[in-house]
């Protein structure tokens, strides 16, 4: 326990240093470039403070988060199901895996033109693009983990008379959870990138990506940098705080 606390402090310190260096690099760039190209860090922080007071900011944030939630959530559920089923079916596993690897190499944002026409201008194409980005790493990690579940764990469950469903729920699912979480964190990165880019392109109703794109269009560099700041901070908070916490909760047995 003492060890994990110490490493926790160390990694927190590493984060603080990294953030300071990044902000410093930004500030150095701002000193060399004119203000209309690159704003000072304090100016952007001031704008951020103003934004945090405005209801429009929260409307955009809410829209983005619900798209992320819907797309990422759907991807996790379907990825876990496909991964578990695919991982246990020897006959289709290799084909399924090859298919995923091929489809995964297409940047999910590339689907936007197709989905815009197919689904119309609205939330749905953005959500689907987010889901596609998150689905493949989830399914692939669960499928790989399912394949390598220890034989003795499966045999033991069969000997105890487990049904197929009990086997999935009580043996396969917990056995693949460590890899699932790694896959889900990877999937979150993909989902987040897909969300911001899709919002920038589709530009349907308020959202973080749209707000960023709009600032660019009106050459409001302070707005651009403020939006980038928000996007960076949110991603770090979701990944490092929320997902890490869920990971520690689910894998509690490994940390004891």
């Amino acid at each position: 326990m003492a060890d994990s606390n110490a490493s926790g402090v160390a990694s927190k310190r590493a984060y603080v240093v990294a953030i300071a260096v990044i902000l410093l690099m930004w500030q150095v760039a701002a000193w060399f470039l004119p203000d209309f190209l690159m704003p000072d860090v304090p100016v952007a922080l001031q704008r951020l403070w103003q934004e945090l007071q405005s209801p429009a900011f929260y409307e955009g944030l809410g829209n983005s988060m619900s798209r992320l939630g819907a797309g990422y959530g759907a991807a996790l559920v379907s990825g876990i199901i496909l991964g578990l089923v695919g991982g246990t079916l020897n006959a289709v596993r290799s084909t399924l895996k090859a298919g995923i690897i091929i489809l995964q190499s297409i940047p999910s944002i590339a689907w936007v033109p197709l989905f815009l026409i197919l689904m119309g201008f609205g939330n749905l194409p953005i959500i689907v693009v987010v889901a596609i980005g998150a689905f493949f790493p989830t399914a692939l990690s669960v499928m790989n983990a399912t394949e390598s579940v220890e034989k003795v764990h499966i045999s033991a469950a069969r000997v105890m008379g487990a049904s197929k469903l009990q086997m999935l729920r009580r043996v396969y699912f917990p056995a693949v959870t460590p890899e699932l979480i790694t896959g889900a964190q990877l999937a979150f990165g993909n989902a987040w990138r897909a969300l911001i880019s899709a919002e920038m392109i589709v530009g349907f109703s308020a959202g973080l990506g749209k707000s960023l794109a709009y600032s660019g269009e009106i050459a409001d560099m302070t707005g651009v940098m403020t939006n980038i700041l928000v996007i960076a901070v949110l991603a770090a908070v979701i990944d490092q705080v929320i997902l890490e916490r869920i990971k520690h909760r689910l894998l509690r047995y490994q940390y004891l």
Binding site: S155, A156, R170, V171, A175, Y253
Partner: peptide
């Protein structure tokens, strides 16, 4: 059946 080892579920 009782196995040699590693048959308990670690989670």
């Amino acid at each position: 059946l009782v196995f040699q080892e590693h048959a308990l579920y670690p989670w």
